[in-house]
Amino acid sequence: MEPPEAIEQVTGGEADAAIIFRYDTLPHFLRIDESLHFEPLGADPLRLLVRRASAIGKAYERNHEPVDLTAAHDEAWIAGCATCRANLLKLAARAGFQPDIRHSTDDYWATQNLVEMGMGVSIVPTLDTKIHVQDDLVACTLRDANASRQVGILTRANDTRESLGLLRSELAETARHYLQPLPAAE
């Protein structure tokens, strides 16, 4: 389930813990009040998913340098869940354009298929690209320092059960292999 639904499940006692993501660009989008505890596990940079044969894809394959989001300002866009869509709109606004969102899905495989068919471009998390990226697609690193999401574990604030402590420990160990360390607080 997406973060808002997972938060409801933990808040309502339907779940003891959830792994959720949140964007620094949207500090108030998710309602995590004092009854909940969010423990960040790491950062998951976002990537621009494009066709390898596109101008952006060819340039990225040539030099492997991060691309500006503005490189895709004239493209049709495929948005994700409501949280991801809000983040896309915020990143695009910061880059100075309004994305032409033509499709919306929270299914990564559908997103890849839509990009592959030339229906648009999309922003996807690096974690999704570790599973599989179709051969005729490329997931370009973005130059924008805000193009990232935090992944973490959500629990009720006063839940100190040993089993949740073990879960946190195992998730933190696993996250070290897949997520980047969070930037140090200033």
Rank of each mutant, 00 (worst) to 15 (best):
D128Q: 11
S122A: 15
R62V: 00
C81T: 14
L69H: 09
A110C: 01
N63A: 12
R143A: 15
F97P: 05
D74V: 00
H103A: 13
P125N: 13
L69E: 03
N146L: 10
D106W: 04
W77C: 07
V133A: 08
A95K: 04
S122D: 12
V115Y: 07
V138F: 03
T83G: 15
I56Y: 07
D135Y: 07
A110G: 01
P125G: 10
I131N: 09
K130T: 14
L142Q: 07
V115M: 07
L88E: 06
L137Y: 06
P66S: 15
P125V: 03
V138H: 05
A59F: 00
A86C: 02
T141V: 13
E61G: 13
T105H: 04
T141G: 00
Q134N: 09
G96R: 07
A79G: 13
L69G: 03
A86Y: 02
N146H: 11
A82H: 08
S122K: 10
L137A: 06
E61K: 08
A139F: 10
A71W: 12
I131W: 05
D106I: 01
R143N: 06
V133R: 09
G118D: 10
E65F: 02
D136Y: 02
V67S: 02
A79P: 05
C81M: 00
A71L: 10
S104F: 00
A95T: 04
T141P: 00
A95I: 05
L91I: 09
C140M: 06
M119W: 04
A93H: 09
K90W: 00
A147Q: 09
M119N: 10
I78G: 02
A93W: 02
V121H: 04
V115L: 07
H73C: 13
S122P: 04
L114A: 12
L137I: 08
I123Y: 01
C84D: 14
L114W: 15
Q112I: 08
D136H: 14
T129R: 05
D135E: 15
P66N: 08
V67I: 12
N63E: 14
R85N: 13
D107F: 02
A147L: 08
T126G: 02
D106S: 15
A71M: 10
D106Y: 06
W109T: 12
W109L: 13
Y108E: 01
A76M: 11
T141K: 11
D106M: 08
R85P: 00
A71I: 00
C84P: 00
E61I: 03
Y108M: 09
Y60D: 02
G96L: 03
S122I: 09
G120A: 06
G57N: 06
V138C: 08
V138A: 06
I56L: 10
I56G: 03
S104W: 00
A93R: 13
D68R: 14
N113L: 11
D144K: 05
P66T: 12
C84F: 02
A110Q: 15
C140L: 09
D106V: 00
E75A: 15
F97W: 05
C81G: 11
D107Q: 12
L137E: 03
W77K: 04
G118K: 07
K90R: 15
N63H: 14
